[in-house]
């Protein structure tokens, strides 16, 4: 008990700061990922010929070791938060892109034809039919991405991006178990918390009529 109290009195302020950094990096990457991957996923459904190609490229990127990607961005963007965010953004893309693509693609073709036959424009079909029906699947992708990102963001520490990784790697270098735990535990808690929060977001973002029916109609 004393050990925990002294840990907090010594590192409490720093812990908060690093947690904030950690969240900042993760969310920035996630936001970029959503902004790019969701529209791209919708677009890919429209151009099936290119879709397979793009999806495989993104899948390949996913297999690169995370450290390698981080290192790869150093010559391009230097060190610090920006290259860290850029690298994590690449990672966040795949789950979101894949789920958006699948979610939109699996929207019942009959519904889309009904929409077309009733005189919806292409834009109206996307916004009023495809997206609302694909929300549960897209949100699942975003949730998965977010949880991964919280974990991967620890590595940002390697290229000077900060975050809770600083605690863990300092602890490893200095053989200080308390620092390692002090960094790893918040990362885990953050991941769990974020998953829960996004779960709620997913529930509320899903149109009432299709809640609890196992995804897109």
């Amino acid at each position: 008990m004393d050990a925990i109290r002294s840990f907090f009195s010594e590192y409490g302020g720093l812990l908060l700061e690093k947690t904030w950094e950690h969240l900042y990096i993760s969310f920035a990457a996630l936001l970029l990922g959503v902004l790019v991957a969701v529209p791209l996923g919708i677009l890919l459904v429209r151009i099936p010929k290119v879709a397979g190609f793009i999806m495989s490229i993104v899948s390949i990127v996913q297999t690169f070791p995370s450290l390698a990607i981080l290192a790869f961005f150093i010559p391009l963007l230097g060190i610090g938060k920006v290259p860290a965010i850029a690298a994590l953004f690449l990672y966040s893309m795949l789950p979101i892109l894949r789920n958006t693509y699948i979610g939109v693609k699996n929207v019942n073709r009959n519904l889309l034809e009904a929409a077309r036959g009733m005189g919806m424009t292409s834009f109206q079909r996307t916004v009023r039919v495809e997206l609302p029906l694909a929300v549960p699947v897209i949100m699942a992708g975003i949730r998965m991405s977010a949880v991964y990102l919280i974990g991967w963001a620890t590595l940002a520490s390697f290229i000077g991006g900060g975050g809770l990784g600083d605690f863990i790697f300092d602890g490893l270098n200095l053989f200080r178990t308390d620092l390692v735990i002090g960094g790893a535990l918040p990362v885990t808690l953050l991941a769990i918390l974020l998953d829960w929060v996004l779960g709620r977001v997913e529930y509320h973002a899903t149109p009432k009529g299709i809640r609890g029916q196992g995804g897109a109609a």
């Binding site: 009959n110 519904l111 034809e113 009904a114 929409a115 039919v129 609302p132 029906l133 149109p207 009432k208 009529g209 299709i210 029916q213 109609a217």
Partner: peptide
């Protein structure tokens, strides 16, 4: 197959 929009 009806084709009502389930989210509306």
């Amino acid at each position: 197959q009806i084709g009502l929009f389930p989210h509306m």
